[in-house]
Simulated assay, not measured.
Amino acid sequence: MQSGCRWVYTLMDWDTGEVVAKGTSVELVEQGYFPDVNKLSSVWNNLEKCKNPSPKNYRWKMERKSTKDDRVERARAEGLSADERAETRMVRVYSCYGADGTLLGKGTAAELKEKGLFGSEGTVHECYRKRGGVYKPGGVTRMEMELCQKRIRHPMKLPDQPAKVKRKPIGGVIDPSALAYDVHDLMIYNEKARKIGKPELTYGYWAEKGKPATP
């Protein structure tokens, strides 16, 4: 879905209810369903106000939901949690065999690592390319590789939930303010100044000088 848009619209046939198109305002304009986003917004607002809209006046029925709700709904439909996404792509799938020809495991490098057959994903690729398919810690003596299309899950970073970066504590204070950091740095500066016989600075003069670290 187009980033930066708050709503996802669904256009439906008046008689059958069949979905004609679905997307953000920008996407529906790009697909030619509306001349511009203002026209789409106007049609939506008029439909909302009209108790009994007529097919003569409007080409489609319309529904809309927030992009966040749509994202969660699509994730659940794919069997994913609300904070996951999935994409189809070509991946390397490895088949690993033991000395007696037993299939020890089959999957992507990440899946083989999760099964405990290999210590890391990089080791899987390296054993296949450079070690002749041998990985003694896992009892693997032969490997085969094939390219397959697979749905890959990824954690989804939600834009409305930015990660908070915590500052290191100063004097026992967790996540101190920027001013507390400045005062701390100024104290260190003045301590260095005293040691070399230079004058100490007040906060204002120190800030004017660009908050230097050393006198």
Rank of each mutant, 00 (worst) to 15 (best):
residue 84 E to P: 10
residue 141 T to Q: 04
residue 15 D to L: 13
residue 31 Q to W: 10
residue 87 E to F: 15
residue 155 P to A: 05
residue 99 A to W: 15
residue 23 G to R: 06
residue 78 E to W: 12
residue 194 R to D: 02
residue 26 V to M: 05
residue 56 K to V: 01
residue 13 D to Q: 07
residue 193 A to P: 00
residue 44 W to F: 02
residue 28 L to H: 02
residue 98 G to A: 11
residue 202 T to M: 03
residue 52 N to T: 15
residue 170 I to G: 08
residue 213 A to M: 07
residue 163 A to Q: 11
residue 183 V to A: 08
residue 141 T to Y: 09
residue 79 G to M: 01
residue 157 K to Y: 11
residue 160 D to N: 14
residue 108 T to R: 09
residue 95 S to R: 11
residue 20 V to T: 06
residue 72 V to P: 01
residue 107 G to T: 05
residue 101 G to K: 08
residue 114 E to I: 10
residue 78 E to N: 14
residue 133 G to D: 04
residue 52 N to V: 15
residue 29 V to L: 03
residue 50 C to A: 14
residue 45 N to R: 14
residue 8 V to S: 07
residue 86 A to D: 01
residue 2 Q to K: 13
residue 27 E to K: 06
residue 4 G to A: 15
residue 68 K to R: 14
residue 162 P to E: 02
residue 85 R to H: 09
residue 11 L to R: 11
residue 61 K to A: 02
residue 174 I to G: 08
residue 17 G to D: 10
residue 56 K to S: 13
residue 91 V to E: 07
residue 152 I to C: 06
residue 15 D to M: 12
residue 54 S to A: 06
residue 29 V to S: 01
residue 57 N to V: 12
residue 131 R to N: 14
residue 204 G to P: 05
residue 174 I to T: 14
residue 131 R to S: 11
residue 49 K to D: 06
residue 47 L to C: 02
residue 52 N to C: 13
residue 153 R to S: 05
residue 85 R to P: 11
residue 67 T to E: 06
residue 107 G to H: 07
residue 176 P to C: 08
residue 87 E to V: 15
residue 82 A to S: 11
residue 56 K to P: 01
residue 77 A to L: 08
residue 151 R to F: 09
residue 118 F to H: 06
residue 125 H to P: 00
residue 81 S to L: 12
residue 214 T to E: 10
residue 19 V to S: 09
residue 86 A to L: 00
residue 42 S to P: 00
residue 9 Y to K: 00
residue 186 L to N: 02
residue 112 L to S: 01
residue 136 K to N: 09
residue 109 A to C: 03
residue 99 A to V: 13
residue 139 G to S: 06
residue 71 R to F: 13
residue 124 V to W: 01
residue 187 M to C: 10
residue 167 R to M: 04
residue 98 G to Y: 12
residue 210 G to V: 03
residue 178 A to N: 13
residue 153 R to P: 03
residue 79 G to D: 01
residue 148 C to N: 09
residue 207 A to R: 13
residue 50 C to V: 14
residue 45 N to W: 13
residue 120 S to D: 06
residue 172 G to V: 05
residue 205 Y to I: 04
residue 80 L to T: 05
residue 101 G to L: 07
residue 12 M to W: 07
residue 166 K to C: 11
residue 166 K to H: 13
residue 192 K to F: 04
residue 55 P to G: 10
residue 87 E to P: 08
residue 155 P to C: 03
residue 146 E to C: 03
residue 197 G to Y: 00
residue 92 R to F: 14
residue 7 W to P: 04
residue 175 D to R: 05
residue 104 L to W: 08
residue 168 K to R: 09
residue 33 Y to A: 03
residue 21 A to W: 01
residue 23 G to F: 09
residue 127 C to A: 14
residue 125 H to L: 09
residue 147 L to E: 15
residue 62 M to Y: 08
residue 183 V to M: 08
residue 156 M to Y: 15
residue 109 A to H: 01
residue 50 C to H: 04
residue 203 Y to M: 13
residue 95 S to K: 10
residue 192 K to L: 04
residue 209 K to N: 07
residue 68 K to S: 12
residue 159 P to R: 10
residue 137 P to A: 14
residue 152 I to E: 12
residue 199 P to L: 01
residue 30 E to F: 08
residue 140 V to F: 07
residue 91 V to W: 04
residue 72 V to D: 13
residue 148 C to K: 15
residue 211 K to M: 03
residue 44 W to T: 01
residue 112 L to K: 00
residue 130 K to F: 07
residue 18 E to P: 02
residue 51 K to S: 11
residue 31 Q to K: 10
residue 66 S to E: 11
residue 71 R to Q: 15
residue 77 A to I: 10
